[in-house]
Nucleic acid binder design. Structure first.
Length: 503
RNA sequence: CGGGGCGUAGCGCAGCUUGGUAGCGCGUCCGUUUCGGGUGCGGAAGGCCGGAGGUUCAAAUCCUCUCGCCCCGACCA
């Protein structure tokens, strides 16, 4: 915080503790270097607060508004691609989870189990859903008889619970909000297409709305969803060079269909198991926005999802000035709101303008308009951008709505470009394992390598470098991609992987 | 589960070594002054010192036991 004063005893005195965030942000690239910054920013900006239950958080109104905007954007895409929303229960019979071998192995350790209800011990314990494949597929089996019932395209917005050892606000909490899509298809090809289509929705959500460039690709066996045949993902780079998985889409093959007997009679009269997918993104996306764009002053929100896109700060001295300025500010506020711009007028009279500047910067509001007596007499306003801290004085009040709405677009693009440039500058290639090791020892980056190793090799590398294969990017694994030597095994391969430290 | 840290006013902390019944900053409330980058001044409210035992004339402080949270590792969206 730039306003920290050093008192005589050398202790930092904070001017406004509740607004404070740490400065050690980008300098500490290494693991956990910005932990404090992250927590302070999330709580300081009032996105979330710690709940009385370990690992749980309260999503505060400002954070929830952000989630609602993200949710709306994605929900529209989910519906445009033909899916319907539904809701399945929180409780799942324990026996359901056990039906798919890999699935139970993957999730059992982190499940919360309800053993009592109504003062009595339950005959069969209930699992609090960690994900809903089992209960949804149980229902699918009842609903699917014929090829005419397919495809079945369902999505639900829900909360899920995973008993995590180590939690962090938004990034990993015991309970989180998400969307989980579950579909059943007549053919493998169709299910595969579905998985890819939804991954593409996630890419658009991340890039067009959250302004976060992502790598799309496939997970290796080691990182695959428990019960899936193939797992696809979008991976984003945070401002400290670490990777964050921002969404996943799974081709489930017939694994769950067989476990839950989702069978249909095909056009040729054969009884066949359905082919399935599932896909999800969560409130973790909020963490991605915070860590993907934030700076030493706090959040930087992409205009398209920002709960408040424009904040107006009135400046005045006397009561007479106050009247004039506020009435001008109010009419400006209405003008912008009418144009569909999410605008807030900060007319609190118990805070000074300087205080408000910092307040809204911490909260990441993309554009601020300062309006004072001098501006009014000149028919102008002052505009300040959050992303590059640029100030534009004397901007004509005439046509301001259009100016602002263009500016919001500009900012949206600018922060995407900034994030993209950052990722490109922090992506390097390695030819050998030694190279990989020394690169990752230096700093957190994406490392592109030829890869022909197996899960065991991957495990060893994780132990030694703390880094994992984030994905096998589609872009680097196209038909006819060049061949090279696997950095680990030395075998010739055309497969390329991205290694990185991850959240 | 292992390692580390912390529980004292709404928030951030001091006090604990050397026991004597609690203090600072910010915030809050009232008044006044200010307002173009975290205004200044004056006044006020607010705390069974995480919990339970013990030692003592006396415990925030010493001892034992507990509970909780945060951070770091093993698991994960």
């Amino acid at each position: 915080m730039q306003e920290n004063l050093m008192s005589s005893d050398g202790k930092a005195q904070t001017v406004a503790p509740q607004e404070e965030i740490n400065e050690d942000f980008l300098d500490e690239g290494g693991i956990g270097g910005n932990t404090r910054w992250y927590t302070d920013t999330v709580t300081g900006a009032e996105l979330a607060d710690y709940a009385p239950v370990k690992g749980c958080m309260v999503i505060r109104p400002y954070g929830y508004a952000l989630w609602e905007n993200i949710k709306k954007a994605l929900d529209d895409m989910i519906k445009e691609t033909g899916h319907s929303n539904a809701y399945f229960p929180l409780f799942i019979p324990e026996s359901f989870l056990k039906k798919e071998a890999e699935h139970v192995e993957g999730f059992a350790p982190e499940c919360a189990v309800v053993t009592h209800g109504g003062g009595k011990k339950l005959e069969e314990p209930l699992i609090v859903r960690p994900t809903s494949e089992t209960i949804i597929n149980y229902m699918f089996a009842k609903w699917v008889q014929s090829w005419r019932d397919l495809p079945l395209l369902i999505n639900q917005w829900a909360n899920v619970v995973r008993w995590e050892m180590r939690t962090r606000l938004f990034l990993r909490t015991a309970e989180f909000l998400w969307q989980e899509g579950h579909t059943a298809h007549a053919t493998a090809e169709e299910a595969e297409d579905e998985a890819r289509t939804m991954l593409e929705c996630y890419r658009k959500l991340a890039e067009d709305w959250l302004a976060l460039p992502v790598l799309t690709g496939e997970k290796t066996e080691r990182e695959r969803f428990a019960g899936a045949v193939r797992t696809y993902c979008i991976e984003a780079m945070m401002r400290d060079g670490k990777a964050l998985q921002a969404g996943t889409s799974h081709f489930l093959g017939q694994n769950f269909a067989k476990a839950f007997e989702i069978k249909f009679q095909s056009q040729s009269g054969q009884l066949e198991f359905a082919w399935q997918t599932s896909w999800g993104v969560s409130t973790r996306l909020i963490g991605a926005v915070v860590l993907g764009h934030g700076d030493e002053k706090g959040l930087i929100l992409p205009p398209r999802i920002a709960p408040i896109q424009v904040v107006i700060v009135p400046i005045y001295k006397s009561d007479a000035e106050k009247e004039t300025v506020l009435s001008s500010a109010r009419s400006l506020e209405q003008e912008l709101a009418k144009a569909g711009i999410r605008t807030h007028l900060d007319d609190r009279d118990n805070y000074t303008p300087g205080y408000k500047f910092n307040h809204w910067e911490l909260r990441g509001v993309p554009v601020r308009i300062n309006i004072g007596p001098k501006d009014i007499s000149n028919g102008v306003v002052e505009i300040a951008r959050r992303d590059d801290k640029e100030k534009m004085r004397g901007v004509s009040r005439e046509g301001l709505t259009e100016t602002i709405s263009n500016l919001l677009e500009t900012v949206q693009k600018a922060i995407f470009e900034r994030a993209l440039k950052f990722r490109e500058e922090n992506t390097v290639k390695a030819q050998t394992y030694d190279e990989l090791k020394s690169i990752l020892k230096e700093k957190s980056v994406f490392v592109e390598v030829f890869w022909d190793g197996n899960s065991e090799d991957e495990g060893k590398i994780k132990d030694e470098c703390k880094a994992t294969i984030r994905c096998l990017p589609f872009a680097l694994n196209q038909e006819g991609a060049p061949k090279g030597k696997c950095m680990y095994t030395g075998r010739e391969t055309s497969r390329k992987a991205i290694f990185a430290k991850a959240y």
